[in-house]
Design a protein around this nucleic acid. Structure first.
Length: 723
DNA sequence: CGAAAGGCTCTTTTT
DNA sequence: GAGCCTTTCG
């Protein structure tokens, strides 16, 4: 297969410009992924560059996986040799390899957000800082920002310009010490320490510079300073650096991403070749025009020439409903309609929203209707308590210095080791210059009467320490699966979990985690555990999104970047939601909200629905929001029903849509059921009615489905059959 | 020590 | 409305 034939001239240009710096500005749907993969394939097949000497950086692991799959088809050569992954994953690998040169333990663990918070809290406690005066999360954000700017605690303190920053500086300093003691790195460290490694160890840098003849970076508009520096360092020798991005899709400034990286690329890399990809292959003309009108209002941007040869297609639908329940109901019934009319499959539809909390009303509606959906994130799998607990056990076994994990699990299940004991343990360890684990080992060796704790507690601590030591030894020569089972069994965790009220369900999450571990089985022990731990820490939830399943995708606008769906619903098109209220007093942030909206609209291939609720519940209270300003930027001729409404009209519309809802609620033949009745559902199969109650003109039934569990169903929607 | 209850504060987006 | 923290009592 010829790599170049199926490309348009601009795309071909982008693929073939292999010498020197290249900037590719790629509008949405312009075949960006295709260009990147073809470029890599071109380098390997036509230019005979060894895959070993190519680095390709993606924004998510999912994007990396996808690219790998595409390359396998395009250039069947050893794609394994490629360095392909997110910045974080690539840096983790580099530090695992060469981090020791700057004092990073070979065994380091990666702390996620949660772990970071607990460590910051501990640092604050030690410094006698009141968490009410300075919230840990504010401090965490600031530290993260400092790291993204490659500022050490010392440098940060020097540049501090107010009291708060001075406080942050002190916490930052102590936090770093605690991280070091725990042999741990946080997410930002992965990047910052790699830059530090390169800057202080020229020989290491040279090694990587010489290796990577070609570097590609995707989603360049969302890189931050650390990432920018990193790329600059590695590309320092050959300068064959190709970056791809779209300033209009920059939506991560809150994570310190800096659009200037892409806007100033030509200045920083003089002579860079610039390629514009402006033809959109994804969306209909109406969708492109709508998106263009929305983004055009931004002042801080260069206009682009996005266009498409695609048909005009359907007009954009704008709906107003009374509240978010009705909004969700509208979405669900509309999806149902599209599916019933055989226009689209459920899996081709996505519902996008600004904040995760908005998924709730949607989920409820999908459940009631009995329509399949998949939620990306939500209570994220790896953030569930039971999952984090087991991971903490595994991590602590892997790395005895990991005090955050130790503190998390030393009393889970309860072993009579409480707050007081732990505080004493920490203090005593500190005064002896030992880690907590070191102290526990000491306790095992000395006579019980020499322990400063009472005998019951000493006994507890000693048996805990012995158990962990035993497991640590087991990890050395056991199969990863056997080892996993030993951990859940011998720690008493399984028993403890199953005794909890919702234990069954939570235990299933552990089994789910176990299946993830299966992927690392072939890695010989003890490295299998290390590989597993690293794999799960750097995974985002979008990474696991499998679009082949035939169910509607519920996803945040941020996560939706880089994806495409035939049908897109954007809900919560209201002032305060999208744009989010936090952006009201900052024009730059407001522009980012607009870009977010733009990203959402441009995910759609065929159909766009923009939904708004007149009233919305937020933290108990109920708010009346005006229509999003973004809606008023869309010309009426692109919209199939009425555009923005004034607030007086909104009330009329609320009444109108209330009636409309009643119309598409088929209130005839509501099935009458009682507890104990057997029923059948198209998706959930057979089950037994547990509870049944009438609600207005409708009825709600709780049904225990065989092998599926309990579901609450609204009978006007769910197609139940009595058997 | 730990379970239960009450009180508080936030809620944007995530590798 | 939840999640976190503190208080209280057994």
């Amino acid at each position: 297969m010829d790599i170049l034939t199926e490309l348009n001239p601009a795309q071909r240009d982008a693929v073939q410009a292999i010498n020197g710096p290249v900037l590719i500005i790629a509008g949405p749907g312009s075949g960006k992924t295709r260009v990147i993969t073809h470029r890599v394939a071109y380098l390997i097949k036509e230019c005979k560059v060894s895959p070993h000497r190519i680095m390709a950086v993606t924004f998510t692991n999912k994007a990396a996986k996808e690219m790998k799959a595409r390359l396998d088809k395009l250039a069947s050569t050893a794609v394994k040799e490629l360095t392909l992954g997110t910045f974080h994953a690539i840096c983790a690998r580099i530090l695992r390899q060469d981090g020791e040169a700057i004092g990073i333990s070979h065994q380091f663990v990666i702390y996620d957000d949660d772990d970071q918070t607990s460590l910051i809290k501990r640092a604050m406690q030690e410094l006698n800082l009141d968490p009410k005066q300075h919230t840990p999360s504010a401090i965490q954000n600031k530290i993260s920002f400092a790291k993204s700017q490659i500022l050490s605690p010392k440098e940060f303190i020097e540049t501090g310009r107010n009291y708060f920053e001075e406080v942050v500086g002190r916490v930052y300093e102590r936090y770093e010490q605690l991280l070091k003691q725990s042999s741990a790195l946080d997410f930002d460290d992965l990047l910052m320490k790699t830059v530090e490694l390169f800057k202080t160890k020229p020989d290491v840098l040279t090694k990587y510079q010489q290796r990577y003849l070609h570097i590609l970076v995707d989603e360049f508009q969302d890189t931050n300073l650390v990432q920018y520096e990193l790329v600059k360092l590695i590309a320092g020798k050959y300068r064959n650096i190709c970056v791809v991005g779209d300033p209009d899709q920059s939506i991560y400034s809150w994570r310190s991403a800096d659009v200037r990286n892409i806007l100033n690329f030509e200045k920083d890399y003089p002579g860079a070749k610039v390629v514009l990809l402006e033809q959109n292959y994804r969306s209909t003309k109406n969708i492109i025009e709508t998106a263009t009108c929305v983004i055009a209002t931004n002042k801080e941007r260069k206009p682009n020439g996005l266009w498409t040869e695609n048909e005009a297609g359907d007009k954009v639908t704008i709906t107003e409903t009374y509240n978010e329940q009705e909004e969700a109901q509208f979405v669900v019934s509309e999806v149902d309609k599209l599916v019933r009319e055989a226009k689209f499959r459920a899996g081709e539809c996505a519902v996008m929203y600004r904040t995760n909390a908005q998924s709730r009303a949607l989920e409820e509606a999908f459940i009631r209707y009995g329509l399949p959906y998949r939620l990306v994130a939500g209570t994220k799998f790896y953030e569930r308590k039971e999952v984090k607990d087991i991971i903490a056990y595994l991590r602590y076994i892997h790395n005895p210095d990991d005090s955050v994990s130790l503190m998390r699990i030393i009393n889970v299940p309860g072993r009579g080791i409480g707050q007081r004991t732990l505080a004493e343990l920490s203090n005593w360890a500190k005064s002896l210059g030992l880690t907590e684990t070191g102290l526990l080992k000491l306790l095992v060796d000395i006579k019980t009467e020499h322990s400063p704790f009472n005998s019951r507690i000493t006994q507890s601590l000693v048996s805990f320490a012995r158990m962990i030591e035993n497991l640590r030894a087991k990890n050395m020569d056991s199969n990863l699966m056997d080892f996993f089972d030993m951990v859940t069994g011998q720690t008493g965790f399984q028993k403890y979990l199953l005794a909890e009220s919702d234990g069954e369900e939570r235990w299933e999450n552990i089994l789910e985690l176990r299946t993830v571990a299966e992927e690392y089985q072939e890695v010989p022990s003890p490295d299998g555990l290390a590989a597993f731990l690293e794999g799960i820490t750097l995974v985002a939830d979008v990474d696991s999104l499998d679009q082949t399943m035939d169910s509607v995708t519920l996803i945040t606008l941020h996560q939706a970047k880089g994806l495409e769906f035939p049908v897109v619903f954007i809900v919560g098109m209201e002032e305060g939601v999208l744009p989010h209220i936090k952006s009201f007093d900052d024009p730059a942030q407001m522009e980012e909200e607009r870009r977010l909206c733009y990203v959402g609209i441009t995910r759609a291939k065929r159909k766009v629905y923009l939904c708004r609720a007149f009233r919305r519940n937020l933290m108990g209270g109920s708010l009346v929001n005006e229509a999003s300003r973004f809606l008023s930027d869309i010309p009426r001729e692109l919209v199939s029903n009425s555009g923005s409404l004034s607030s007086e009209e909104a009330i009329a519309s609320a009444v109108y849509s209330w009636n409309k809802t009643a119309v598409f609620t088929p209130s005839e033949n509501i099935l009458e059921l009682k507890a104990g009745d057997h029923v059948r559902h198209a998706r959930f199969g057979e089950g037994v009615v547990i509870n049944y109650q009438s609600v207005k003109n409708d009825a709600q039934a709780t049904v225990e489905f065989n092998g599926v569990g309990q579901k609450k169903l609204l009978l006007s929607f769910a197609k139940l059959e009595k058997i």
